[in-house]
Design a protein around this nucleic acid. Structure first.
Lengths: 241, 241
DNA sequence: TTATCTATCGGTCTTTCAGACCTTAAAATT
DNA sequence: AATTTTAAGGTCTGAAAGACCGATAGATAA
């Protein structure tokens, strides 16, 4: 049998397939709070419960898993170029009452002022919720576990990468950026250490413009065009005052 | 409609599903070489080509994705308790000629002397191949890309964790362990740095027995029971002589 | 028997970078 | 003009890796 003949005779339904979904944790920082996007389900199962952003892979519409995640994300947030990172996939019989499901988990970082929420089809409401609150709610499916995994990943990356810059839009001061890091980590960082690292990472550039504020003006920076996130070889301390 | 009625009427075939597979890179170190397990395919597609260990998720047999990976791994290597880590999932239309496929990728660490190769169903041969060689071969599907991702993950983890200890079996000397690290990384490590880190990681314990060899005897160590891999807060240098 | 060889193993100085603390600067406010 | 507050940078300390060295223990060769 040739490869061509084989493919012609190949029966995709011979093997029973799990359903395949993508779920994303959309992070933003607003008013010194790390927040995630929750969607109120208007369909069964888990009707009326809050859930993460997700949906089935559409093999006619999506070229890849990343494409599925981006499609859902744009539908719900109106933002099309987030930092998006795949975290893991979870598969099992018990996690969805409809049967064996594989869900690939992503998290995205979106600047708060870029958000344009839209509950969309199958949902009656959408809102940003603080991490503390979300972890105290009863979320649909195993979404609390999913949220914890993404949170852990994000916090770890804040200790050794420049990733959280993707929560900033346009120009920002180093103090503003430090505040974002501190909010994610849940503790303060030594100002000097933070500045040394950021300025040494070669990923930021001065805009030349100062932030005019009520106190001493601060230099504003922007992300250098075309640079990837910087990985430090040494972590910040993970526990602090 | 109640949740119960909904589930009763739910039609799983309403949404066309991608096929779902698991592929694993089985690493071992032997004779100063980092090697991976390759399987010679005896079926279409890619008949006669070498591939990684993989297979479809069987929703009646497997409780989770990890279970699928372990099942395939035990079939091919005869080893049932490897260090197994999920790396990522790749999904798309083009990666398998049979259509849209999601593959969840794992890598496993197996001590060389624990291997008991068995090509198994659908394969005519199985062999351990050095990384250098494998990367020069024409592998089935997108398995070369998959291999590169796993290799990158393993090398990074060797810089800041104790993970490679899982390539050792029973008792081992620190020199033997260092050699494993050096083989993975592809460069030498300062002996003093390595010993300081390993002994400071609190994950090893002296066995009290010395390795009798042709030179000065060395203390042998074993992995402490029940400890998880240690994460250092500082990386080893990633490039060296 | 003694010298040599080689791998083991610990001593210690240097280097790098984060932590901690402090001083100075630049604005607005009192 | 003095005070307050945030920005920005100086500098000392501490921790851990890099680099180099010397002592040790056994096997082997002279």
């Amino acid at each position: 049998m040739t490869e061509k003949e084989f493919l012609k005779n190949y029966d995709p339904s011979a093997f029973e397939r799990p359903s395949t979904a993508v779920d994303s944790v959309i992070f933003t920082v607003y008013q010194e709070e790390l927040q995630v996007l929750l969607i109120k389900r208007d369909e069964l199962p888990f009707h009326g419960k809050w859930s993460l952003v997700g949906g089935y892979v559409n093999i006619h519409q999506d070229d890849s898993l990343d494409a599925t995640a981006l499609r859902k994300l744009e539908e719900k947030t109106g933002f099309s170029s987030p930092y998006l990172e795949q975290v893991m996939s979870i598969g099992g019989k018990e996690r969805d009452p409809r049967g064996w499901t594989i869900s690939t988990i992503y998290y995205a970082l979106i600047p708060h002022d870029a958000l344009n929420l839209n509950p969309g089809k199958g949902a009656s409401d959408a809102k940003m919720t603080s991490i503390a609150e979300a972890l105290n709610m009863e979320l649909a499916f195993d979404h609390k576990t999913v949220l914890k995994h993404c949170l852990e990943r994000l916090r770890n990356k804040a200790l050794y990468t420049t990733l959280p810059v993707h929560l900033m839009r346009g120009n920002f001061t180093l103090s503003e950026l430090q505040s974002i890091f501190e909010t994610i980590l849940g503790h303060t960082i030594q100002q000097k250490s933070f500045r040394r690292r950021m300025l040494g990472s070669e990923t930021l550039e001065e805009t030349g413009e100062m932030r005019e504020t009520t106190r001493r003006p601060a230099m504003t920076y922007r992300l250098k065009a075309g640079v990837s996130p910087h990985y430090f070889t040494r972590n910040l301390e993970s526990v602090h005052l």
